[in-house]
Amino acid sequence: MNYIWLALMAISLIVGAINGRLEAVTTAAVNYAGMAVEISLGLIGIMAFWLGIMKIAEEGGIIKILSRAIRPIAKFLFPDIPPDHPAIGMMLMNIIANWLGLGNAATPLGLKAMKELQKLNKSEDTATNAMVVFLALNTASITFIPMTVIAVRAKLGSANPFEIISTAVFSSTCATIAAVTAAKLLQRLPNIRKSDPNRMKEDSREGDDNA
């Protein structure tokens, strides 16, 4: 992330200077900073709502039931997470919300899942393998109804705005498989392995309950 951020900033400033667009670049910085805060604060209401609902779901045992239901897949994708851990159920809820195109619900559910994953993390600021796999599922996320783009197509008078559903589902499925495979393969690289905050526990299967 360090290098990407540095590259984005440095390239923008250099290219901006060459193009004589430095003013536009700084204006963009100010505008986008404001936008970032707006987006974050805009999440508060919906965030609070879904976190409240999820607390009920958790105490009512729904998350546990979900976690059990997908144990075989979860074991393969997230070998470091104890099978009954609420993180699994939360991640499943998030992924289902993504499938249904419920962006509104997917983010709070995903963030709740991250919180659960962070409880299993030995470090404060370094991502675990499980987190990276979960994000891979999310960044490529399969959506069965990409509503936004369908709406734009409809507005522009498409004869069949929905015709891109099948192609989008196909390519997003490929993207998801690729992203997860990449995450799984990259975590074996020596450098990335070394930075795994849970590497001390790699061989034990109990996870860490009292970290």
């Binding site: 992330m1 963030l111 991502a127 490529a140 196909f170 390519s171 993207a175 690729a178």
Partner: peptide, 27 residues
């Protein structure tokens, strides 16, 4: 997602995500 739990070192998350994007776009 990482911001919400204070993760600063994202390790191979960006690489994995971008590989997924690339495959998705090619597909």
């Amino acid at each position: 997602y990482f911001g919400s739990v204070g993760i600063r070192k994202s390790r191979h998350a960006i690489a994995s995500g971008l590989i997924g994007d690339l495959v998705g776009l090619l597909m």
